[in-house]
């Protein structure tokens, strides 16, 4: 299957393999198959697939994953900059992004 990949070397995802207990939760929650499993340890297949949704870090019971999660949405960033707030998906207003 064709895979869409965004910009190279920008993503903030890191995995501390020494903390990993091999539960495999990150493999289950990742929507872009960023993680693989090798000998009861998770590893990152390709960081450039990551969209920083934060699901892996939130669901890692060992806190072995760090990522600065957020919405990859230009409209939200502009809105955030204009209003001086954190960029947030404006789906509750009329923003188109989130259908």
């Amino acid at each position: 299957m064709q895979r869409l990949v965004y910009l190279k070397n920008v993503v903030t995802l890191t995995l501390k393999e020494d903390k990993c207990n091999g539960c495999g939760m990150c493999l289950k929650v990742c929507p872009h198959e960023v993680f693989g499993m090798s000998g009861h340890k998770a590893f990152i297949i390709d960081k450039d697939y990551c969209m920083e949704c934060g699901a892996c870090a939130l669901n890692c019971p060992q806190d072995a994953i760090l990522v600065r999660a957020g919405v990859g949405c230009a409209a939200a960033l502009i809105q955030g900059a204009l209003t001086g707030t954190e960029p947030a998906c404006g789906c509750s207003s009329r923003k188109a992004s989130c259908s």
């Binding site: 965004y6 910009l7 929507p31 600065r68 990859g72 960029p87």
Partner: peptide, 13 residues
């Protein structure tokens, strides 16, 4: 980017 399913915050910035 906001409608797409694969863009990251860091990349959009």
């Amino acid at each position: 980017t906001g409608s797409s399913t694969y863009t990251s915050l860091s990349g959009v910035k």
